[in-house]
């Protein structure tokens, strides 16, 4: 297998995609959001239970490719016990990592990323950035929803933020 492909599909990513952790609904959720990537049909619902400002529990359900499933699974593991501000900061780190210039990806492997550093290979695959970021966008929406006390049923994939890689679907 090529080294780029092995970088993308690291063992830990394959493991989480085959056996996703925290893959369940969360009855006690204080926030919930659905993410949808219309390009590939990936769907992720992220549930978050806040205790004060801290993530007490977080889980997800949905169907997607191995990158989006593993990203959601590893995100839930990384977030437990974090404050909202810490979660935001982690997303920023993660986002910087997966949208790095491939030649400088190593510089963006921050220590606080922990296991999430496994996603460094994604930056070689611009069309897969959305797969990795979908769960995080959805999480942010779930957290915001809780703060604003509104139902959060929006599609994060269409937010058009720094994932400038989102492209219109091509010809048949």
């Amino acid at each position: 297998m090529s080294s780029e492909l092995r970088e993308l599909y690291q063992e830990v990513i394959l493991d989480h995609s085959k056996r996703p952790r925290n893959f369940r609904e969360l009855p006690a959720a204080t926030g919930r959001a659905e993410g949808y990537n219309p390009l590939c049909g990936d769907r992720a619902t992220v549930y978050v239970e806040l205790e004060g400002d801290r993530v007490k529990d977080v889980s997800f359900k949905g169907a997607g490719c191995s990158i989006s499933t593993a990203s959601a699974s590893m995100m839930t593991e990384a977030l437990k016990g974090k404050t909202r501000a810490e979660a935001d900061a982690l997303f920023d780190r993660f986002h910087r990592l997966i949208t790095s210039d491939p030649s400088r990806a190593a510089e963006n492997v921050a220590p606080e990323l922990g296991k999430l550093a496994a996603f460094s290979g994604v930056c070689e695959f611009p069309v897969r950035v959305k797969c990795a970021s979908l769960p995080w966008h959805t999480l942010r929406s779930a957290l915001e929803g809780e703060a604003a006390r509104v139902s959060t049923e929006e599609t994060e994939a269409s937010r058009g933020d720094a994932d400038g890689k989102t492209r219109p679907e091509g010809s048949s």
């Binding site: 492909l5 997607g64 490719c65």
Partner: peptide, 14 residues
């Protein structure tokens, strides 16, 4: 079963 088309497409590309 078990293989999302996008992963299939990426592997095939290589």
């Amino acid at each position: 079963d078990g293989v999302h088309p996008h992963d299939m497409g990426t592997v095939l590309d290589y």
